[in-house]
Nucleic acid binder design. Structure first.
Lengths: 210, 210
DNA sequence: TAGGTAATTTACCGCTAGGTAAATTACCTC
DNA sequence: GAGGTAATTTACCTAGCGGTAAATTACCTA
């Protein structure tokens, strides 16, 4: 019954299943260590397989990365789009977006960092594809941040850029904290974010600046 | 007059001077790419020297990292301590802290990421030393964040942990944006942060949550 | 029982990295 | 000039990674 295991040949795992295993392991490894620091042998070992098989199933390291990226990107983009879509740009939109992201990420939390990997080989297809995803997401967020700024009386385009940047990284930070607290549900996270926002708001009683 | 340059031997650069050159180059390289991705050959090349010399001057890669870390850590810790020290915990303390960090970092902006490097070999001395620095800085920040939270009515210790985390990463994000906009002065950055805070405050008209 | 084929491994190549021992060169002094 | 010493390089070792070609094993079928 038990497959020979120690010797070479086949372990009889059907193609599709193996493929999924590999993508799952690779996504986690890429997310945890980043593209550059992630190693194919490590990913292969996690599946219980040789790195050669990885290559035969999913091509080069960059190919593998792209194969991990696409489903994650689609999923997250969809979640953000949906969260922003309903109800215009209500005041609590950011929380809705966060909630969407958290639920989309549940079960594969590290996947976020696959989408926002800064160690991709520059000029390669992986970097191109990834940048397409965050451009799309940023475009969705742009409306919200612009609105915030104009409400606060700023017209500086650099402010808008910085705010976009900060928002993106804030999400990353929250997800990173979430990864370190596995027991937290997406709902609990969303509520916590609401509390944090409230706390942050007490920082500037009423803001006004040059 | 011009040193032979192409051939071996000495280029006549005095020991101390070389050492400083190396530390400067290493700090920038570690900051830009992170410990794991930074390469000794690249650092050496930047100084115009062989990697062997690097080893002879500053030991192993981890030794070199620690040598870069210490001055940066001392400097930043000092800046934060000073910014927090004067005037208790006034409402605009965060901005003062940011201003202190920005000025401490001027001229070596990437140095921040040396202090907060996530790719250090776990269990090593580098990781230990770095964690000591951020523990010290976090301790300083803890007062401020706790105050914010209690003002907003939260008593959850996890909230405090998350907020500490968010604040730390927010600083990192702002510095990262700053690195990408070299022409910005520390003062301009501080003012921009003030505007961003104000904009963020409009997010939660009045916060209240479970 | 003989193929065929799908699943997998073994063995290897080239490259780069971190690291060390042993030379090499230039200057300073007697 | 002859040493000594400081600054630096050349040459080399080992290990790990990404990647490829060629075996190997097990199952299904005719």
């Amino acid at each position: 019954m038990a497959t020979p295991s120690s010797k070479a040949g086949t372990k009889g795992v059907p193609r599709e299943r193996r493929r999924r295993q590999m993508l799952e392991a690779a996504t986690e490894e890429f997310g945890r260590h980043g593209y550059a620091a992630a190693s194919l042998p490590a990913i292969a070992a996690r599946v219980g397989v040789t790195k050669t098989l990885l290559h035969q199933y999913l091509g080069s390291k960059e190919d593998l990365y792209v194969a991990c990226l696409v489903p994650v990107g689609d999923r997250l983009l969809g979640a953000v789009r949906e969260a922003m879509g309903e109800g215009g740009t209500a005041p609590h939109t950011p929380l809705r977006v966060l909630h969407g992201i958290f639920t989309a990420l549940e079960g594969r939390r590290e996947a976020w960092f696959v989408l926002y990997d800064t160690t991709l080989p520059p000029g390669g297809e992986a970097a191109r594809r990834a940048s397409e995803y965050w451009a799309a997401i940023d475009r969705l967020a742009a409306g919200g941040t612009a609105e915030l700024l104009s409400a606060a009386g700023s017209t500086d385009p650099l402010d808008a850029d910085a705010l976009k940047y900060v928002w993106r990284d804030l999400v990353a930070t929250l997800v990173r904290w979430w990864v370190k607290h596995p027991e937290q549900t997406p709902e609990a996270m969303t509520q916590r974010c609401a509390r944090l926002f409230a706390a942050a708001a007490t920082l500037t009683p009423e803001g006004r600046s040059a």
